[in-house]
Structures are given as C-alpha cells and as structure tokens.
C-alpha cells in the first residue's frame, strides 16, 4: 500500500501543541527561579542568583535523607498498590455476571474519591483512635490484642496512609481497567469456550494479557508521582509522633517555602522531583520497548 502523506497528522496535533506551548512550555522558562532567591517585586531578571543554594536547602538539612526516603517509600507503595488493587478488583468484578450487582458495586467503590482528605482525615482520626476508635474496638474484641497505634506510631502510620489512600482511590482506578475489559474482543472468549478452556485459563491467557498493556501504561505514567506522596492526605493526618516516618517532601516544602513565600526553594524542589520522575519514566519506557516491543506513548 502506498504510504499516505502525514501532513494531516501534524495538523491534528497542532491545536494541542499550541495549548501546551502557551500554558506549559512558556511558563516552564520560569524554572530559572530555582537558581534565584526570587523576590516577586524584583522579577525574573532582577532577583539575585544564588546558584545551587535552594537545592542545598533541601539536601543539607539533618532530616533531608529521612524526608526524601519517606516520600519515596510512601509514594512507591501507593503506586504499586494503586495499580495492583484496581487491576485485581476489575478482574473480580468481571466475574460477576449480574450486571446490576456489578454496576452497583462499581458505583459504590467510586464514592470515596469524592471526599477530600480534610473530611476523611477527621473521620480516620476518629475511627482509628487507640482510645475507643471503631476499628480498634473491633480488633480488641475480635482478637484480644492491644489497640493498634495506626496514626501515632511511624511504621503503622505508613501502613495507614497507604491503605487509606488505596481504599479511597481504587474504585476510581478500576474504571480504566473496566473500560479496557470492554475493549477485549469477545470472539477470543468464544474461541476459548469452544476449546473447553476453564474460566481460570481464560483469565490467565486472554483477560490478563489483554489488560497488561493498559496496566503498563498506567503504571509508567504514575511513576511521575514517585516523589508525590500525597500532600493533602499526609498534611491532614501527620503529627509529631510520626514525623520520622511520615514527613514528606511536599509537607516540608509547604512549611518552609509555600508559607514563607520562598518561590525559589519551591521551584527547585519541584525541579528535583521532575528530574527523578523523568529518569524513571524514561527507564520504564525503554524497558517496555525492549522487553515487550511496546511503546507506552
């Protein structure tokens, strides 16, 4: 077949590109303020240059390593579970044959996404309290254990943060996979049925492979959040007892840069996070291309 001219492709992309140039690339020039002690009234050109000072503010604190590690581990766990749980949930949901039950469950698990952490934070503090909180009362009665310090001990705090995040978001994350399931060609199942393949085999050899590309895409893109551990959630839940395991880059930036009007520091931290994300995404993209010959984007 004769190769078609590709000018329509450029035309189709142009509007989006225009928006990106205006609202993303032009403002991106402002990254220069990472290297300035930026004062709004002096502007981009008038603010004093400070070299790498803003970056050393992030790296030279006594707790820098701790904060960065906390961010990485919390965000990493969230990325993994926010991928695995919706994936499995979508598979399980796929097995429910009565459409109305399936749809009801889908709608219900989608609800927590719409409550902000300000509200959920208050609810969690209540139900997870060691002093008569609902969950601890249940655990004590059912298993006879001591109340669990879900929010007031560092390791438990990480656990609580990850679990509550997954609980809030998995229903929303499931939607992508439900849509991907709908995209699977039914004739594949029909053929398997004829061959007498069990449901488990069908899942293993048709459903999961069909969903994998989408899972890789979602997973790779979520690597962009590898240093975003969820400001709203942590900010509403953390306290002095868990700073050691729960203070993250974003809460640190909020306290020392946003509240203080230090735009240079805030931008420098943003740049650091972006570079780390970029590296991971590039690696992931290359791996997917090499191993599976699949271009994620």
């Amino acid at each position: 077949m004769k190769r078609m001219k590709d000018w329509p492709f450029h035309v189709m992309i142009f509007p989006s590109l225009l928006f990106l140039i205006v609202f993303s690339y032009v403002p991106m020039l402002g990254i220069v303020i990472s290297f300035q002690d930026f004062k709004p009234w002096l502007g981009f050109t008038g603010s004093p240059w400070v070299g790498w000072d803003n970056f050393s503010m992030l790296f030279e604190r006594k707790d820098s390593a701790q904060v960065i590690w906390n961010t990485f581990i919390i965000a990493g766990l969230k990325i993994v579970f926010n991928l695995v749980v919706p994936f499995v949930f979508a598979l399980l949901l796929n097995e429910i044959r009565k459409a109305y039950i399936s749809r009801t469950i889908q709608t219900l698990v989608y609800l927590p996404h719409f409550l902000s952490w300000v509200i959920l934070g208050g609810i969690l503090v209540d139900i997870l309290s060691t002093d008569g909180g609902l969950v601890n009362r249940f655990l004590v009665a059912a298993f006879g254990i001591d109340p669990v310090p879900f929010l007031s001990s560092g390791n438990w705090f990480r656990f609580t943060v990850v679990v509550s995040e997954v609980w809030k978001e998995f229903g929303y994350g499931t939607i992508v996979f439900i849509a991907a399931l709908a995209n699977i060609n039914p004739s594949l199942y029909e053929a398997a049925e004829v061959d007498g393949a069990s449901r488990w085999k069908q899942t293993l050899y048709i459903t999961i492979p069909s969903l994998l590309p989408m899972a890789v895409v979602v997973g790779t893109l979520s690597l962009g959040n590898i240093l975003n551990a969820g400001f709203d959630q942590i900010f509403n839940l953390y306290n002095a007892l868990v700073y050691e395991k729960g203070d993250i880059i974003d809460t640190f930036v909020y306290r020392t840069a946003i509240l203080e009007g230090k735009f240079g520091l805030a931008t420098a931290v943003g740049l650091f996070k972006s570079v780390v994300s970029m590296v991971l995404i590039v690696i992931s993209y290359r791996l997917a291309y090499k191993l599976a010959n699949y271009r994620i984007f």
């Binding site: 078609m4 492709f9 590109l17 609202f23 032009v26 991106m28 990254i31 805030a266």
Partner: peptide, 29 residues
C-alpha cells in the same frame, strides 16, 4: 513508519506532564 514525527511529539507531550515552572511564571502567563 506511518508518522515519522510521532516520537518527538509524544515526548513533547509527556515532558509537560513532568516538568512545570511552578506558580509564578504560570501566573504571569
């Protein structure tokens, strides 16, 4: 092979997802 520029475009798109200039320049724009 069908659209030679696609990789450049794709990365141009993805790049904006990862990098941003922060609040100040955005406000100016």
């Amino acid at each position: 092979y069908a659209f030679r520029g696609r990789n450049i475009y794709a990365w141009l798109f993805v790049f904006t997802m990862i990098f941003n200039g922060g609040l100040v320049p955005f406000y100016v724009v």
